[in-house]
Simulated scan of single mutants.
Amino acid sequence: MNSNKVISISKTVAPIMLGTAVYAFGLLYFIIPSQLMEGGVTGITLLLNYAFDIPIFLTTLLINLPLFLLGWKVLGGRQIVYTGVGIGSLSLFLWIFERLISAGWIIPFSTEHDFILAALYAGVTLGTGLGIVFRFGGTTGGVDIVARILGRNFGWSMGQIILAIDIFIIGSSIFYIPKEKILYTLVAVFIASRVIDFIQEGAYAAKAFTIISDEAPQIADLITAELERGVTLIPAIGAYSKQAKHMVYCVVSRQEIRRLSLLVKSVDPRAFVIISDVHDVQGEGFRET
């Protein structure tokens, strides 16, 4: 294996391990001290920990093995290798943080009354960890494998899939933990799902302008001159008029929205303008790949 390939693999494996470390920390620092729940396989491991004091790093590894074999058949190739990295590193970091907490090196977050803070911090931490793992093509096993399979086959958001499965599993735990803890847990799970989607879609948000006008070429020239943004002219035909015209497509930062709108109106006040959200913009003038 040449050095370039090793570097390429490391750029994927390292973030996956970082994500599992953040996720493991969130579980042991926010979830367990407040006796909150989680969904999926993690929820099962937490119940076993609360009921029988079984280390969650051990049950996480054992329960994920059959799911890993399922993923091996369905996902295959490099993706399942990264899933194996996620499962292994999650169990490893759970073991490490458990030892650090037991030794007193880390003092767990604990509150007797304000569980909403624990839920908020847990949601952000767990969502950040899983979002990083998913963004780089890995999973932490459990329902993550199921979510990735459904996301690939049906195009559903992984955050939404995990949210639905987690609500079902957490709801089933009402017989084992107080119902108020379940409600706080749902807050954490919802926040985590939003953070997952945010990280996967990209932290940088921009706006895409689609402009339909008889003065499209002039508008495109003005955008290029005034904003120094790339512009694409797309041939189109009006369905009613049957006349050929052009559409202008341009992506700008949030700070340039008003300026671009004024430029369009200065050329054609009757132009039809569509403004859409854009995530994770790459290329000149935005985030470089």
Rank of each mutant, 00 (worst) to 15 (best):
K5W: 01
K5V: 12
V6H: 15
S10W: 09
S10D: 02
P15Y: 08
P15I: 03
Y23G: 01
F25S: 05
G26W: 01
L27D: 06
M37T: 08
M37Q: 09
V41D: 02
V41I: 14
I44F: 15
T45Y: 02
T45P: 03
L46E: 03
P55K: 07
L58C: 05
L62P: 05
N64C: 03
N64Y: 02
L65E: 15
L65D: 08
P66W: 06
L75V: 04
R78E: 14
Q79R: 11
I80M: 08
V81D: 04
Y82D: 04
T83P: 09
T83K: 12
G86S: 06
G88A: 13
G88C: 08
G88Y: 02
G88H: 03
L92K: 01
L92H: 03
W95D: 08
I96P: 01
E98D: 14
A103C: 11
G104H: 14
P108H: 13
T111G: 09
T111V: 13
H113M: 06
D114S: 05
I116E: 14
I116G: 14
A118Q: 09
G123W: 01
V124A: 00
T125N: 06
L126V: 13
G131C: 02
F134M: 01
F136P: 08
G138P: 06
T140I: 07
D144A: 13
I145F: 09
I149F: 15
L150M: 15
N153L: 12
W156D: 13
W156K: 07
S157L: 01
S157Y: 06
S157N: 11
G159W: 00
L163W: 07
L163Y: 06
I165H: 03
S172L: 14
I174N: 11
K179A: 05
K181G: 01
L183T: 13
Y184P: 12
L186Y: 13
A188P: 02
V189Y: 11
F190L: 11
F190C: 09
A192S: 15
A192V: 13
S193P: 15
R194G: 12
R194W: 10
R194Q: 14
I199R: 07
Q200R: 09
Q200V: 02
A205L: 12
A205T: 15
K207N: 05
A208T: 14
F209W: 06
P217N: 00
I219W: 04
T224F: 10
E226Q: 05
G230W: 05
V231L: 07
L233W: 04
I234W: 05
I234R: 09
A239E: 13
A244G: 14
K245V: 03
R254D: 12
Q255C: 08
Q255Y: 15
I257S: 03
R258A: 03
S266W: 01
F272Q: 10
V273E: 03
S276C: 06
D277M: 04
D280W: 11
G283N: 09
F286W: 08
F286R: 00
R287H: 11
